[in-house]
């Protein structure tokens, strides 16, 4: 059985109810969740230099072995969709203050799930008037009239720029003067489900190196389109679990290789 550790909820206005003994419990309903994103460390010479690594996540959940689903509420996320922009350009570790239902304390949590990207309903509005974190101009993907869900820019050992940008592609408008109202042909909005083991706080690790390696293997410096557009894109997108033909998650979305979940004690800190 897996138990997640929860840290004290310092900003809470609520005092723990007396019959609950866990120090992290901030109300009968809500508990602080210690959560962060880390970049996998890469050592050795000749490694590419990451210039930019940013991605949107939303709809984060803890999953229990009995099928219960507990939404993770991000403190600094946008509105009802709970969208967060994880910016790993300048730091290897990004804490994400969050709360979950206190019922998770007694549940057998065995996975964390989230969606990579921006929900369709918000993906095609005017970015200049959008709220944080959807007002980040580097994340606009004007060619496809949406956002870059996952933006990875690096400089290779030989000094060349290498970019991988993931986002919805193949979008069509219902009318010539309206944004798309039906989902794009290649949504590329990836559902990630990560198995958990351990006993400390939750760390989601992102591995940009496998993506860069896939592109290098195909001698391609830019993938900024949908899965079937080029071999390099297909290889890179398959790392996210996206099948180039069906353009859907392969299996149960657990075969992707970019994200892993760890528990803090096990993470390479």
């Amino acid at each position: 059985m897996l138990i997640l550790a929860f840290s004290a909820w310092r900003l809470s206005l609520f005092k723990p109810l007396s019959f609950l003994t866990q120090e992290s419990v901030i109300s009968a309903e809500t508990t602080a969740l210690q959560l962060r994103f880390d970049t996998v460390r890469r050592t050795g010479t000749g490694a590419p230099v990451i210039k930019d690594l940013r991605f949107y996540v939303h709809d984060l959940q803890l999953l229990a072995s009995d099928g219960q689903v507990f939404p993770i509420h991000l403190d600094n996320a946008d509105g009802e969709h709970g969208i967060a922009l994880i910016d790993m350009s300048r730091q290897r570790s990004v804490p994400l203050p969050a709360r979950v239902s206190s019922a998770t304390l007694s549940a057998d949590i065995n996975a964390v799930a989230f969606k990579l990207g921006v929900p369709f309903a918000l993906n095609h509005a005017n970015p200049l008037t959008a709220r944080t974190p959807l007002n980040e101009s580097a994340m606009y993907w004007v060619w496809q009239q949406g956002y870059k869900f996952f933006k990875l820019d690096s400089t290779s050992a030989s000094g060349e720029g290498v970019s991988f940008h993931l986002g919805s592609a193949g979008c069509e408008s219902e009318s010539a003067l309206r944004p798309p109202i039906v989902e794009c042909r290649y949504p590329n909005r990836v559902s990630i489900v990560l198995g958990l083991s351990g006993s400390e706080g939750l760390v989601i690790q992102v591995n940009p190196w496998v993506v860069l390696q896939a592109m290098q293997n195909h001698n391609m410096n830019l993938c900024s389109a949908a899965a079937n557009f080029t071999d390099a894109c297909a290889a890179a997108l398959s790392l996210f679990g996206i099948d180039p033909v069906s353009d859907r998650c392969v299996g149960d979305c657990r075969i992707q290789q970019v994200f892993t979940a760890k528990i803090m004690a096990d993470a390479d800190e």
């Binding site: 580097a138 060619w143 979008c171 069509e172 003067l177």
Partner: peptide
């Protein structure tokens, strides 16, 4: 086919 208005298109050269 997606970029119908200048208000959309101008974002490309800018950003």
């Amino acid at each position: 086919p997606l970029i119908q208005e200048l208000e959309q298109q101008i974002l490309i050269p800018l950003f």
